[in-house]
Amino acid sequence: MAEETKFIVFSLAHEEYGVEVDKVRTIERMMPITRVPKTPVFVKGVINLRGIVIPIIDLRERFALPQAEFTENSRIIIVAVGEMEVGLIVDSASDVIDLDTDLIADPPEVVGGIKAKYLRGVAKLKDNRLLVMLNLHEVLNKNEIIQLESIEG
C-alpha cells in the first residue's frame, strides 16, 4: 500500500530536492551567521534562532557544487536530525508537495555530481520534473554530528 508523504521542495544549483516535512522545523530567510573555528569547510557557523544555537551547513559546499552568492530567495531550512537541529542553506524553498512513496526510485550512483549516499531516492513528478530526495542522516553523518553537537554547547 503506497503512502503519501509531504516534502518541502527546494532548489540548489538549478536542481530540485525534497526533504520530508516532518524533519523540517522552520524555513528562515538568510541571517548573519557566526563563524566557528575548526569546523568542516561546509559548516558556515551558527545562528541564534529564538534562543537556540543552530549549526548552519551550506549544502552547495557539502555537495561540492559551485558556490553562488546568496540572494533574496536564499533560505535556511532548519531540519531535525535525531535530537539535533541543523540549518541547511539552499538557493530557494519553493513549495510543499504530497508524494506517493512508491514513486521514489533508488538513486543512481551520482545525481548532478552528488554521491548516492547523500540521497534517499529520486521521484518523477507528474510534470516530468525530477525531485531528488535527501538522506539527512548521511548529509550529516555521525562523526560530523558529534562535531556539530560540540558547537551547540
Results as ranks from 00 to 15, higher is better:
I151H: 01
I78M: 02
K142A: 13
R60Q: 05
G82R: 11
V132P: 00
I151K: 03
A64V: 07
A68V: 02
F63G: 03
S94V: 10
N73P: 00
V53M: 12
I54F: 01
V46F: 06
V132W: 00
L88G: 03
V111G: 11
P66Y: 01
G45E: 07
I54Y: 01
L99Y: 03
I151E: 02
E61D: 09
L99G: 05
F63E: 02
L88I: 05
N48Q: 14
I52K: 15
K23Q: 12
A116V: 06
D91T: 08
E16D: 13
E20D: 15
D98R: 14
E28F: 09
L99D: 03
I54N: 03
A116N: 13
D127E: 10
P40Q: 08
V81T: 11
V81A: 04
V132M: 03
N73R: 12
E138G: 00
T101Y: 01
K23W: 05
G121A: 08
I104N: 04
R29S: 11
E109W: 07
I52M: 13
Q67G: 08
K126Q: 09
P55Q: 03
V46W: 04
M84C: 03
R35K: 15
K117E: 10
N48K: 12
N141R: 04
L125P: 04
L140G: 03
S92W: 02
R50C: 11
V21M: 15
E83G: 15
V41C: 12
I145M: 12
Y17N: 11
V111S: 12
E72L: 00
N73K: 10
E16L: 12
G153M: 02
R129H: 14
P40Y: 05
D100H: 10
R25G: 12
L134I: 04
S92Q: 13
T26K: 15
L99V: 06
V19H: 04
G45N: 12
I56V: 13
P108E: 08
A116C: 07
K115Q: 10
V111W: 03
E61S: 11
Y118E: 04
F70P: 00
E83V: 11
I104G: 07
V41E: 15
A64H: 11
I146V: 12
M30V: 05
G153R: 11
Y118L: 03
T26F: 10
G153V: 07
L148P: 01
D102T: 12
V43C: 13
S94Q: 15
I151L: 13
N128V: 02
R129S: 15
I89V: 10
V41P: 13
T101P: 02
K117I: 05
A64D: 14
I52D: 15
E85N: 13
V21T: 15
L134G: 00
A123C: 04
G82I: 05
G112F: 06
R60M: 01
I33C: 02
N143Y: 07
E16R: 14
T101K: 06
A105S: 10
L99E: 02
D91F: 01
I56C: 05
D91A: 08
I47T: 08
L134W: 00
R35L: 13
R62S: 01
L125Q: 03
D22M: 11
D98W: 07
V96K: 05
K126N: 09
T34M: 10
L130F: 09
E72D: 06
H14E: 15
D102W: 05
